[in-house]
């Protein structure tokens, strides 16, 4: 079959539109690969009214075939490994992986246990790491924001260079969301 190509100006417009759509409405899928639930309830908390990521267009999606971003937690147990790989393979290109929590980064407190692979980046290419046991919802939102910023520039996120103060303000500030209830 001959691949049909648009002429270059149309192709440019199409690329811009898809990039715009991707940045403004990334759909995420959540996979628990053996985590303790702590990160998962924090991911769920980002969807609920206090943090409400849906106002940024981020939506948790049921099927991997509809998702752009894989939010993955846990130290990857032997049994969950195949399911994780299959979920990742079912996602359409381009796809991005965010590893949430200390276990997803290195195995965390379970490092060395006999039934874990230890760290999601041993299996999948991870774009953003969100540290913490578990990370605060603000941290998870920041992780997604880092990914989106990089996409805006048209590339995958670069490894974060620790500058000492840069992240501090974002990850630990009260963020003005207190007293949201009542």
């Amino acid at each position: 079959m001959v691949q049909q190509t648009l002429n270059s100006s149309w192709q440019n417009v199409l690329t811009k539109v898809t990039a715009w759509a991707r940045i403004n409405s990334p759909w995420a899928i959540h996979f628990n690969s053996g985590s303790c639930n702590g990160c998962d309830i924090q991911i769920l908390a980002t969807l609920t009214p206090r943090y409400d990521v849906e106002r940024f267009g981020i939506k948790l999606q049921g099927s991997p075939r509809h998702a752009d971003v894989l939010l993955c937690t846990g130290p990857v147990t032997m049994q969950a490994r195949d399911a994780l790989l299959r979920t990742y393979e079912q996602m359409p290109e381009p796809k991005f992986v965010i590893a949430v929590g200390s276990c997803g980064l290195s195995g965390g407190v379970f490092h060395g246990c006999y039934n874990i692979v230890g760290g999601i980046n041993e299996l999948l290419p991870v774009d953003v790491f969100v540290p913490g046991c578990p990370p605060r919802p603000e941290g998870i939102i920041y992780g997604v924001a880092v990914l989106l910023e990089a996409l805006k520039a048209g590339k995958r996120p670069e490894p974060i260079q620790w500058s000492g103060s840069g992240l501090d303000g974002v990850l630990h500030s009260g963020s003005g969301l207190e007293d949201h209830h009542g």
Partner: peptide, 27 residues
């Protein structure tokens, strides 16, 4: 799917370290 081997892992850690391992059985 979430079997990590915590009980066996506990045998390789000290009494104090286990406190933090046990806490992470469930979030």
């Amino acid at each position: 799917y979430v079997h990590r081997g915590i009980e066996k892992g506990a045998e390789a850690r000290t009494w104090t370290q286990n406190l933090y391992l046990m806490e992470r059985i469930c979030g």
